[in-house]
Deep mutational scan, measured.
Amino acid sequence: QIFVKTLTGKTITLEVEPSDTIENVKAKIQDKEGIPPDQQRLIFAGKQLEDGRTLSDYNIQKESTLHLVL
């Protein structure tokens, strides 16, 4: 699982696999929060994550925290 922290300070927990794409993660966030993926920007280690890449591409491991910017 990974954590996604929103600007409001809320933390969302997501069940993911390293092979999941960023697009996939955004879809999971939409399921939980109702935020359309095209409004979501995910930041990890100061980098904006691209939809077509996977979590493992960015070396995002379990218990990692991503930041969600709208």
Results as ranks from 00 to 15, higher is better:
Q1V: 15
Q1D: 05
Q1P: 10
I2V: 07
I2Y: 05
I2T: 02
I2H: 01
F3Q: 05
V4H: 01
V4C: 04
V4M: 02
V4I: 13
V4T: 01
K5I: 15
K5E: 09
K5W: 07
T6D: 07
T6W: 12
T6S: 07
T6P: 05
L7W: 13
L7I: 14
L7Y: 13
L7G: 13
T8H: 12
T8Y: 13
T8N: 14
G9E: 04
G9D: 05
G9Q: 04
G9T: 03
G9A: 04
G9Y: 04
K10H: 12
K10E: 09
K10W: 09
K10D: 07
K10Y: 13
T11C: 13
T11N: 06
T11P: 04
T11Q: 07
T11S: 06
T11V: 15
I12H: 03
I12N: 01
T13P: 06
T13F: 07
T13N: 06
L14S: 00
E15R: 12
E15S: 15
E15Y: 13
E15M: 15
V16T: 05
V16H: 05
E17H: 13
E17M: 14
E17Y: 13
E17V: 15
E17F: 15
E17G: 08
P18I: 12
P18C: 11
P18L: 15
P18Y: 11
S19Y: 11
S19T: 13
S19D: 12
S19N: 14
S19E: 10
S19C: 14
T21R: 07
T21M: 07
T21P: 05
T21A: 04
T21K: 08
T21D: 03
T21S: 08
T21Y: 08
I22V: 11
I22W: 02
I22K: 00
I22T: 05
E23M: 14
E23F: 14
E23S: 13
E23N: 08
N24I: 15
N24C: 15
N24S: 14
N24G: 09
N24Y: 10
N24M: 14
V25A: 02
V25M: 05
V25I: 11
V25C: 05
V25D: 00
K26A: 02
K26C: 02
K26T: 02
A27N: 12
A27L: 11
K28Y: 06
K28N: 03
K28P: 00
I29Q: 00
I29T: 01
I29F: 02
Q30S: 12
Q30L: 09
Q30G: 07
D31P: 02
D31Q: 13
K32Q: 11
K32T: 08
K32A: 10
E33T: 13
E33F: 09
E33M: 13
E33Q: 06
G34F: 04
G34K: 06
I35C: 06
I35R: 03
I35S: 04
I35Y: 13
I35E: 03
I35K: 02
P36E: 08
P36V: 06
P37V: 14
P37S: 14
P37K: 14
D38E: 13
D38C: 15
D38M: 08
D38G: 10
D38K: 09
Q40N: 03
Q40K: 02
R41D: 08
R41T: 14
R41Y: 14
L42Q: 00
L42F: 03
I43C: 13
I43M: 13
I43W: 13
F44E: 02
F44D: 02
A45S: 10
A45V: 06
G46V: 02
G46R: 04
G46S: 05
G46P: 01
G46E: 05
K47G: 06
K47V: 15
K47T: 14
Q48I: 15
Q48W: 11
Q48K: 08
Q48Y: 14
Q48A: 09
Q48S: 11
L49Q: 00
L49E: 00
E50A: 08
E50N: 07
D51E: 09
D51M: 05
G52C: 11
G52Y: 10
G52Q: 10
G52V: 07
G52E: 12
G52D: 13
G52H: 15
G52T: 10
G52I: 08
G52W: 12
R53P: 05
R53S: 08
R53A: 08
R53I: 06
T54K: 11
T54E: 03
T54Y: 06
T54A: 06
T54G: 03
T54V: 06
T54F: 06
T54M: 09
L55N: 00
L55Y: 01
L55S: 01
L55G: 00
S56L: 13
S56Y: 10
S56T: 07
S56K: 09
D57F: 15
D57G: 04
D57K: 03
D57V: 04
Y58W: 02
Y58T: 02
Y58S: 03
Y58A: 03
Y58R: 01
N59E: 08
N59C: 09
N59M: 08
N59G: 14
N59V: 04
I60F: 03
I60S: 01
I60Q: 01
I60G: 01
I60P: 01
I60N: 01
I60R: 00
I60K: 01
Q61V: 11
K62Q: 13
K62S: 15
K62L: 11
K62E: 10
K62R: 11
K62P: 12
E63L: 13
E63Q: 11
E63V: 04
E63W: 14
S64H: 08
S64R: 03
T65E: 08
T65K: 05
T65Y: 08
T65G: 03
L66D: 01
L66Q: 01
L66F: 04
L66V: 08
H67P: 01
H67Y: 15
H67V: 13
H67Q: 12
H67G: 05
H67M: 13
H67A: 07
L68P: 00
L68F: 03
L68T: 01
L68H: 01
L68Y: 02
V69A: 09
V69S: 09
V69W: 10
V69R: 08
L70N: 10
L70T: 13
L70H: 10
